[in-house]
Design a binder for these strands. Structure first.
Length: 627
RNA sequence: GGACCCGUAGUGUAGCGGCCUAACACGCUGGCCUGUCACGCCAGAGACCGCGGGUUCGAAUCCCGUCGGGUCCGCCA
């Protein structure tokens, strides 16, 4: 190896390349420009001639000796430039001394074992370095607007504007890789079980229920529009009628609503539909998949297998919402009849108005300061509560506004009901059911975090089942029924008659999959009987004209032998965010939009030309605000 | 549409009525260095403290407005 290194002369690139390739085992990552990636060289390659390409991530210049860490997606390799080795190396050294961070280099050299004691055990390639003989600047780089290093966090708006630089960082790159592995796992899993991935249209029909649609004006039909799909719901049911039997899709969905940390206007779902199934078929399929997915793509552990099933009613009662975070306990407790004790008007009034009085016991928080309690009260008020009643169980006795309204015995009953022990703080909220549950569930989450009850390596999954089919919503001051999940969800056997007598009592054949307090998916066994589907549409307040215009094709399809079927949709972005342990889906999305909906890299949305508008038969109503 | 938080060199932060002629780290420029690996050392450039108005003898600092970013509410089957 020494001889080949020292006797080689400077010569043409083509010849050098050929020589180097002949001495290198074939790397699957080899290309016309390189023989190996930056992540694969080990002590086994010592003596081989290699060609590397990559970005300058660090440069350590000693005047004579220069070290450059070269990075590509696959890893990092140290290249050493020693000008005194020979004339070629001296030339390479001159170029290296001009190179700056993020320059793209092509380095030709020989793999050498690092000097004894100079190995870097934190690097996969830390046993070796590449002694550069030739180097070529494939492209220089301007000084980057923020450091490309994991230990520095730059402003997110800046990172989004230069997303291609942000993706050179380890954290984001690893998330993108994790997302790929997760989706590949899912595709393989579904494929092994006989599912067909079928693409459904992106240009489709606007639907009245649900979120605001993104509309696409039609050039050929003046005044008419396509809509981007909020989900492939109707198509997947039609695929069941078609006899596809098992369908899935990694499907892009679009909803024109305001953004959140866990909501982007376009997002990806694992969309699944199966024929001849009941609830447990779908739930088993997804549960096995999620366990495998979590265990193969992460080192996190699953809190409980099989996943617990929680009835909607019990979830609301115990956790105050339908997506309980089971990583910690802290259950809400309904005071029930105990709220009638004493003379506390706040509690009595809530019950009078069919409201709830519920408590949350927080172990060890009795010593909370006035300021902390004021902050929590303020928090409760911003979410609609009139206030927060506290009960501190101090060693010297209870401290609470309740002591003025309840006798010591009565207060004791309340404490016992709550399971209170000395040192605990108990919060009470008395309000209508919605606000009471909402406030206490938020308080519960906050307390879980505050008390450090959350293990970041834990995944607590559960199914929430037995949802009501319908709920009442207010729209334009009028109350009407609204489908809890979607208008296609079926109902428990024998409950069809309730649709006429007491629709709110009907239980849907619906199931939601929850992980760490996030709804990651939901689905149902569907209606496949046209008459029943028609009746549900009527209950939802659709006129005959609307039913025919919007869903006539579905009802018609159901008249041609629609099999019993059901399915589910999982939010891939949220799921990968949870796998990655992140706080926002932007961190697992290659090119996300900011909260205001803008893509600051591409600068979308943007104005279009008058000519484009004319072709689409459109005229703008408002004068343009932006120049 | 609303509430709250944030905005200081390229980046991340400190400063929170006068000691600010704005500090520190990284980066950048120049110089030195043959075993570093978030190299080290020396020197230097770089900020009208987001913008506008007000209070004050005096504002990066307090108040109001505005713009930008984030979190949440509304909205999202």
């Amino acid at each position: 190896m020494t001889s080949s290194r020292t006797t080689r002369k400077a010569n043409g690139g083509a010849k050098a390349t050929k020589a180097a390739q002949s001495a290198t085992p074939t790397s699957p990552l080899a290309t016309a420009l390189r023989t190996v990636s930056c992540g694969e060289l080990t002590a086994a390659n010592v003596g081989q001639e290699v060609i590397l390409t990559g970005w300058v991530v660090h440069r350590r210049d000693y005047g004579k000796l220069i070290f450059i860490d070269l990075r590509d997606r696959f890893g990092l390799t140290q290249v050493v430039f020693d000008p005194e080795r020979n004339a070629d190396a001296a030339a390479a050294h001159a170029i290296a001394s001009e190179a700056r961070l993020e320059y793209v280099l092509r380095v030709e050299g020989v793999v050498a074992r690092r000097l004894p004691g100079k190995e870097n055990p934190s690097l996969a390639t830390g046993e070796i370095e590449v002694e550069a003989r030739r180097v070529e600047v494939l492209n220089p780089s301007k000084v980057v607007p923020f450091p490309i290093a994991d230990h520095v966090t730059a402003d997110e708006a800046l990172r989004l504007r230069y997303r291609y630089l942000d993706m050179r960082r380890d954290t984001l790159r690893k998330n993108i890789e994790l997302r790929h592995r997760a989706v590949k796992y899912i595709r393989d899993y579904m494929d092994e079980r006989g599912f067909l991935e079928v693409e459904t249209p992106i240009l489709t029909k606007s639907t009245p229920e649900g979120a605001r649609d993104y509309l696409v004006p039609s050039r050929l039909y003046p005044g008419e529009f396509y809509a981007l799909p909020q989900a492939p719901q109707q198509f997947k049911q039609l695929l069941m009628v078609a006899g596809i039997d098992r369908y899935f899709q990694i499907a892009r969905c679009f909803r024109d609503e305001d953004l959140r940390a866990d909501r982007q206007p376009e997002f990806t779902q694992l969309d699944v539909e199966m024929s001849f199934v009941e609830e447990q078929d779908i739930m088993n399929l997804i549960e096995t998949m999620l366990i495998g997915l979590i265990e193969t793509t992460t080192t996190k552990h699953i809190k409980q297998k099989p996943f617990p099933h929680i009835r909607f009613e019990d979830a609301m009662d115990r956790y105050g919402n339908d997506r309980p975070d089971l990583r910690f306990d802290l259950p809400l407790v309904n005071l029930g009849a105990l709220a009638r004790l004493g003379t506390f008007k706040v509690f009595h009034d809530a019950l009078e108005k069919d409201g709830l009085v519920k408590g949350l016991r927080v172990p060890g928080l009795a010593t909370a300061t006035r300021k902390e309690l004021d902050e929590l009260t303020e928090f409760a008020k911003t979410h609609g509560a009139k206030g927060l009643v506290t009960l501190a169980l101090l060693p010297e006795g209870p401290r609470s506004p309740l002591t003025k309204f309840l006798s010591p015995d009565e207060l004791n009953d309340v404490v016992r009901h709550m399971g209170g022990e000395t040192g605990d703080l108990i919060f009470f909220v008395a309000d209508d059911a919605k606000i009471c549950n909402d406030v206490l569930s938020r308080l519960r989450s906050r307390m879980g975090e505050k008390l450090g009850l959350i293990d970041p390596d834990e995944m607590a999954l559960c199914w929430v089942v037995d949802f009501p089919l319908l709920e009442v919503i207010e729209e334009d001051g009028k109350e009407r029924y609204h489908a809890t999940h979607n208008p296609f969800s079926g109902m428990k056997a024998g409950e069809e008659a309730l649709l006429d007598s007491d629709p709110l009592k009907v239980t849907a054949r619906q199931y939601d999959i929850i992980c760490n307090g996030y709804e990651v998916g939901g689905g149902s066994v569907r209606i496949n009987i046209p008459e029943l589907q028609h009746k549900v549409f009527q209950l939802l307040g659709l006129s005959e004209e609307q039913i025919t215009e919007q869903f006539g094709h579905m009802l018609e399809a159901f008249e041609y032998g629609a099999p019993p079927h059901g399915g589910i949709a999982l939010g891939i972005d949220r799921l990968v965010m949870l796998l990655a342990g992140g706080e926002t889906i932007r961190d697992v999305t290659a090119f996300p939009k900011m909260q205001n909906g803008q893509d600051v890299l591409m600068r979308a949305p943007s104005p279009v030309t008058e000519e484009q508008l004319r072709e689409l038969h459109l005229r703008l109503r408002e004068p343009e605000k932006r120049s």
